[in-house]
Amino acid sequence: MTLSEAIETLKTTLDPRKFLQSLERAADFYSESDSEQDSDSGDDSGNGPSDSSSGSQSGDSFKGSGAAVKTAALSNGTTPLIKLTDVWKIYQMGEVEFAALKGIDLEIYEGEFVVVLGPSGSGKSTLMNLLGCLDLPSRGAVFLQDRDISELDESELARIRGQMIGFIFQSFNLIPTLGTLENVTLPLEFQEMDPGKARRRAEYLLDIVGLSDKKKNLPSQLSGGQRQRVAIARSLAVNPPVILADEPTGNLDSKTGNYILEFLEKLHEQEGKTIIIVTHDLELVKYATRVVYIRDGEIEKIEHAEKHAEKHAEKHAEKNEMEE
């Protein structure tokens, strides 16, 4: 399976209609979306990147993703989405070598909600960079869909990042000179999507995060929570299978932070998105299906939030039954 095939397969596992249903509720949370939303969203659902797949196909594949959640939670069977084998990251600091990561082995499966928990300096940011294909390991290998990312050249890595991973940063990292809508459109432009389609998609996503009335605003004119919502909309722009968040609530008050996390949880539950959050905040553990404790560059322990995970899996199973 080539990389692009893999990406396509992953994308078709997402049902745009599902996505809509779940996220409309999220939009209601802020009640900023108006009555037009229904018709808007109805139009826009057809414009999603996965509109090539027919309704029945996506229905089937959604079942598949539900199963994936189950298996992933139990950590057996199928190929991991991301696999780290004996990964070292060593920084040269003058004369001294400093190992930020010391032989990490980690497998992340499709549909998981993984929280990487560690104090500052534990190497969790370095780990995130590797998971996000932003950096290459000094030793060991990072496999994405069974493919070693060290073997890929820069433009291929950029393509993987652009198509498979949605980044959410602690400090939001919006482009300050671009308006909200343009910020959300940007990843689609890097993927050379048709401008009209990209625009509609971005408008739709802004609607979902409840910011459809702030399309023209610059990031500096938004509150922290609003900025992070724009960042989430941006991370969803290309409809990537993986959302990678680095301290997404670090710069937010707890109420806004909770909204963001609940939003991510919905993405996980209802879309089957694989969510990876890197944080030092113990609070976030409650959302996880699996918690990776990291300290001094080593994995201290991995904890399965069995109950939580099962609950999710059951939920999915029920839903699928109901649909059938």
Binding site: L134, E154, A158, R161, F167, N173, I175, P176, F190
Partner: peptide, 14 residues
């Protein structure tokens, strides 16, 4: 910003 753009899919050429 360059780092961000690269993270969200910008190639060197872009």
């Amino acid at each position: 910003e360059i780092g961000t753009m690269k993270a969200i899919g910008a190639k060197n050429r872009d």
